[in-house]
Design a protein around this nucleic acid. Structure first.
Length: 581
DNA sequence: ACTAAGTGCGCG
DNA sequence: AAAGCGCGCACTTAGT
């Protein structure tokens, strides 16, 4: 069942399947170039707009080539909509972003502005599909020659790397891009009825356009009474702050945290108002109208949207769905949701990256923080949490900052790794994740400030400002290696999950709103850094739970070959499965 | 009327 | 600015 060609690391052309490069012809038709490997001459097929989908379908069935395109973000959705799924791909834009900044290559990728993603938003949302005739433009320069040259350049760069880790990263990044589009196509099953129920219970009936919901209006009036300012708009921080000061509440900001430590009659209604205002503005009726159709929430995922390699998202705030609304996530009839998340992924990655045996020991079992307590570094779980987070984020003051030095004595290798990354960042250096994604170089303004501050006639203020910016960058690079490696683990996990789900038999009952490809297939429906949700036929719930665990083990083994580190999952099957089964 | 920056809060 | 990292989005205010 395990086919080496399907593995996310099967990026080496000699060992892998043929590559199918796809690009636009000047005529507006499509060009498909099949290359057995990087050196082989391509076999060119030119097809019309109309024939592209059937052609891809046929080639996919016959050869399962690695589909190599400028961007899957635009190439893949129309295929999915037409019912065509592909197994493997190479996203040139995403891999260019990885390879252009990688210092460890002896044949670095020649920089090319044409292969820079203009920015996440432009590429994600507004840009018309390549399938639209209007998107064809000479200045895009995404013709077959350009695509082939970039592809060869990337494979040459990968071949010059000291080991296969970058190739694994590029393969995983590309598979991630497939998964991102597949998840958008399938959507996250969302019960509008359940969501409406929550909104009405919390906010009251849906207000007329532009009006405040009933419960918010009542609270706003009460806040106005408490502060003797009946027309006060609690949504305006400056006015609210002035009103608070007039009433003798001397806070420095109107943030929830600061207000909650003040004793005053206005605090309770104000905090309640803020909570409801957030729900109303971020995930209220307007959000539901805009983002949920056919009982599906379909955000756009931006693979590699964060410099560390994490995904970002665009539209609907997919990565910020409040816990409060998670109960609106409901499977279709006959289906269920299996979700899984990793407890303390980042410190586990740090323990394994640094080969810190004491931290690996603390990571044994379900709760790493309890393990830190067991090691004697700190007294309570709460302290362990603050200390570990502070170590990875670079805390220097407060509760967290005070605890970090204790970790240095107990986990010298782990702390040594993040401390070194921070030093490197402060000095303007570049750091890398385990698979070789490099942090961005400091920009010119940063470098200039550092140079000037160390010059002979630097003013004191200028000097301390530059030092502060240096420390800022140190905290960024400190966190980069951990957050980025955790993102790599998650990417491998996703790829392994997808691979295994594809081998499951079809569903007995279709999930129609999941689209033509996924209506009869268990499928990934959501991903958030260290958590996934799979929408699956009820009869496959247990199989999926097992797949999620097996895939996690496979991801760990792939990232840390021959090294034992616990990465335990919390796996949960939604209630409807128990009832239905 | 429109845009950019600041504030605040949701997620990991 | 709790307390250090990474995000997206809505709202208000300040500036054009």
């Amino acid at each position: 069942m395990s086919d080496a060609g399907d593995r996310p690391d099967a990026v080496t052309p000699a060992a892998g399947p043929p590559h199918a490069l796809v690009a636009r012809a000047p005529s507006g038709r499509w060009v498909i170039a099949l290359h057995a490997d990087v050196d082989a001459a391509g076999v060119i097929t030119e097809v019309s707009e109309r024939d592209l989908v059937p052609q891809v379908r046929e080639l996919e069935q016959r050869l399962s080539p690695r589909w190599t395109v400028r961007s899957l973000r635009t190439f893949y959705p129309p295929l999915l909509a037409a019912g065509v799924r592909v197994r493997r791909a190479h996203d040139l834009l995403l891999c260019h972003a990885i390879l252009r900044d990688t210092a460890s290559l002896s044949h670095p990728l020649p920089p090319s502005g044409r292969w820079l993603r203009a920015d996440g938003v432009e590429d994600a949302a507004a840009q018309p599909s390549l399938f639209d005739a209007g998107a064809v433009s000479a200045e895009r320069d995404d013709g077959i020659d350009e695509v082939r040259a970039q592809w060869r350049g990337q494979l040459t760069a990968l071949a010059s790397a000291p080991d296969s880790r970058l190739a694994l990263l590029c393969a995983a990044e590309s598979t991630g891009a497939l998964i991102a589009e597949e998840m958008t196509a399938a959507g996250l099953p969302w019960s509008t009825a359940a969501h409406h129920g929550i909104l009405e219970q919390q906010l009251g009936p849906r207000p007329l356009r532009g009006a405040r919901p009933a419960r918010m209006a009542v609270l706003a009036a009460e806040i106005g009474r408490c502060l003797e300012d009946p027309t006060l708009n609690p949504d305006s921080p400056p006015r609210l702050l002035r009103a608070l000061h007039r009433a003798g509440v001397f806070v420095d900001s109107t943030s929830r945290w600061e207000l909650s430590r003040v004793e005053h009659p206005v605090v309770a209604p104000l905090l309640e108002y803020k909570k409801l205002a957030r729900l109303f503005a971020a995930n209220g009726w307007a959000w539901l109208d805009e983002w949920v159709h056919d009982e599906r929430f379909r955000p756009i995922y931006l693979t590699g949207g964060v410099v560390t390699g994490r995904w970002a998202s665009s539209g609907g705030g997919a990565l910020q769905i409040p816990r409060q609304l998670r109960s609106a996530v409901r499977a279709d009839a006959g289906w269920t949701l299996v979700d899984a998340d990793v407890a303390q992924l980042e410190p586990r990655m740090l323990a394994a990256m640094s080969r810190d045996s004491a931290m690996v020991e603390a990571a044994r079992g379900r709760d790493l923080y309890e393990g830190v307590v067991r090691s004697g570094a700190v007294a309570t779980r709460d302290e362990a949490k603050y200390a570990v987070l502070g170590a990875m984020y670079g805390a220097t003051t407060g509760k967290s900052g005070q605890l970090v030095p204790r970790l240095r004595t107990v986990y010298p290798r782990a702390m040594g790794l993040v401390d070194a990354a921070a030093r490197s960042g402060e000095q303007g250096g570049v750091v890398s994740t385990l698979l070789g994604r490099s942090s961005p170089r400091p920009d010119d303004a940063w470098r200039l400030a550092q140079t000037q501050a160390s010059g002979p006639d630097a003013a004191g203020a200028e000097e301390s400002r530059a030092r502060s910016r240096a420390r800022d960058r140190g905290r960024f690079t400190r966190n980069f290696i951990v957050q980025g490696t955790a993102a790599e683990w998650a990417l491998l996990w996703l790829a392994e999950v997808r691979h295994r789900l594809m081998a499951l038999p079809p569903a007995s009952v279709p999930a129609a709103a999941s689209g033509p490809v996924f209506r009869d297939r268990a499928h990934l429906a959501f991903f958030l850094h260290d958590e996934v949700i799979v929408h699956a036929p009820i009869e496959q719930a247990e199989a999926v739970a097992g797949i999620l665990r097996d895939a996690a083990d496979a991801a760990t083994a792939r990232l840390f070959p021959g090294f034992a580190i616990d990465v335990p999952l919390d796996v949960h099957v939604a209630e409807d499965a128990a009832k239905g089964a």
